[in-house]
């Protein structure tokens, strides 16, 4: 990534991207020109672009965490989610858009992990924009061939008795993993449980946090 600048960190601790104060790049020049032409031609408006950015910013792994926590606490909802992920998420107020959402459930016997080997399809309408590693050559290449080695890099080591199921998002489906509910959470509310559901646990590169880690 030749354009990274690591000298300043944002409040979230990540480097800022070159933006307003950096020299204009050719591709930024093109973006400005296209945006202005599209507005002049009535294809879109500045307000519509801003609204779309706000809508994308509002999507985050917290949305998925709420869906997972409800599935952990409401067996009928869990069944609905597994039967039709888009409809069940929409019923909670999360509009998945034109793509179909499929929820896949981890159990002691099965661990699911999501990848897109052909590009970087991601459940962005539920979880927000994908992390950079999800779009990387390494993740896209290796996950279908050596998922356990990839998982180990994320700190997840599974017993041989657990089958790994890789899901390659090749067409119109998007996926969310329902991680295994952590032990020691009996009686927890859905709101508290959602705090244990990480982004990576919903992609399958992580597990839900245990209450001990959370404390």
């Amino acid at each position: 990534m030749p354009h990274d600048h690591h000298d300043h960190l944002s409040p979230s601790g990540h480097p800022y991207r070159p933006d307003d104060d950096h020299p204009l790049t050719y591709w930024q020049q093109m973006e400005i020109a296209i945006r202005e032409i599209l507005i002049e031609k009535g294809v879109t408006t500045a307000a519509e672009i801003n609204a779309q950015i706000d809508a994308m910013d509002a999507r985050s792994p917290a949305n998925g965490a709420a869906v997972v926590a409800r599935a952990w606490t409401d067996p009928a909802f869990r069944d609905d989610l597994l039967a039709d992920g888009s409809a069940a998420s929409a019923a909670m107020g999360f509009d998945i858009g034109p793509m179909k959402l499929i929820a896949v459930e981890n159990t002691p016997d099965v661990h699911n992990i999501i990848v897109c080997t052909l590009c970087s399809c991601y459940p962005r309408n539920l979880l927000g924009l994908p992390p950079d590693w999800y779009k990387s050559r390494a993740y896209r290449s290796r996950t279908v061939r050596e998922p356990r080695k990839v998982l180990a890099e994320f700190g997840v080591t599974l017993p041989d008795s657990t089958q790994v199921r890789v899901h390659d998002s090749t067409a119109d489906m998007r996926y969310i993993v329902i991680p295994t509910r952590p032990a020691g959470t009996d009686g927890w509310s859905a709101g508290d449980l959602a705090g244990l559901v990480t982004r990576d646990s919903m992609i399958g590169t992580g597990l839900a946090r245990s209450p001990a880690d959370h404390a």
Binding site: D4, H14, P15, Y16, Q28, I53, P131, D132
Partner: peptide
């Protein structure tokens, strides 16, 4: 798998929106 992560800048968000 690389672990670097960056925040999206305004121009990137605009591209996504377009």
């Amino acid at each position: 798998v690389p672990t670097d992560q960056h925040d999206f800048s305004l121009w990137e968000k605009r591209v996504d929106a377009l």
